[in-house]
Design a binder for these strands. Structure first.
Lengths: 148, 148
DNA sequence: GCTTGACTTCGAGCGCGCTCGAACTCTTAA
DNA sequence: TTAAGAGTTCGAGCGCGCTCGAAGTCAAGC
């Protein structure tokens, strides 16, 4: 009974990575407009809902607060007349984001230097090991946890 | 009575951007090793403390959790023998960070596209405005891609 | 009809990372 | 000597963003 534009909350949870709890929570607080319902009252998400959720996730991943997203969603629901206000919001958000990306890149450099420093210490503590000996291939890139 | 290597908690708060509350909290939970005290029991931070706090702030800014930083601080206090373990921690953290930077850059691109899209809408709602020197370029893209 | 299971609403609870307030001590200046 | 002000400890509280549990509804299969 599920088509591409008629998705159960569970299916949307799977696709979006949000929990069903969080999907209902987002709707409750106005991040997602009231979703269409099947006869029995169950939610049926449309393609447009999925797209919007995807965009919300971008906003969230880039550090926008819930209240910021609420404001954005409110403007969106008010129609095209708020395009300017939304653009201004996004411009501010983008500026913040670009600044943060730079800060993170700088921090990455610091981490790299620190890692190199630790290699030095390790080498000086075990001086019989070759320093960059290409055998036993470096343990870089160990894991990569989750989250954006 | 304050020299460069003998700083009050207030001074350190000012320099680091952390609150005095947070500085004491960090010490309490083991992120900062017990700080030297003046005769009356007041904290006196050394240059090395400041450097460490700066590094902690990098870790925090790049998304390391308190418990992660606690683990790192614990290794650090155990001496050079833990250099390898610390390096491995940082390598994992760095890999995560690089992944996040990429995700953020992608998101920034999405935001930029969205901003451009809003400009289009704004222009189509006020068609008598010239668009960047050219005469008003019709109502492009009105219904396509609605908002999401 | 009855069971199963996926859904519903609603409010309470939780983990994280601070943040604050109370009560006290110590140093310094008047 | 006194008063102000900066520091101390400790535990409680808070804001954010979920997360969960209880109790109920609904549709489908046996």
């Amino acid at each position: 009974m599920e088509s591409e534009s008629n998705l159960s909350i569970k299916e949307v949870a799977t696709r979006s990575g949000l929990s069903v709890h969080t999907l209902r929570y987002y709707e409750r607080i106005g991040l997602i407009a009231p979703v269409a319902r099947a006869s029995g009252g169950q939610r049926r998400y449309r393609g447009a809902d999925l797209e919007w959720i995807g965009f919300l996730l971008r906003l969230r991943a880039t550090g926008m607060s819930i209240s910021g997203m609420q404001e954005f969603a409110r403007l969106r629901s008010a129609g095209d007349g708020t395009a300017g206000a939304r653009r201004i919001m996004l411009e501010g958000h983008l500026a913040r984001l670009l600044g943060e990306i730079e800060a993170l890149q700088q921090a990455a450099g610091v981490l790299q230097a620190k890692i190199a420093h630790y290699r030095q210490i390790e080498h000086s503590l075990a001086p019989d090991q070759p320093i960059e000996g290409k055998q036993h291939a470096t343990r870089t890139l160990r894991q990569r946890t989750r989250q954006a």
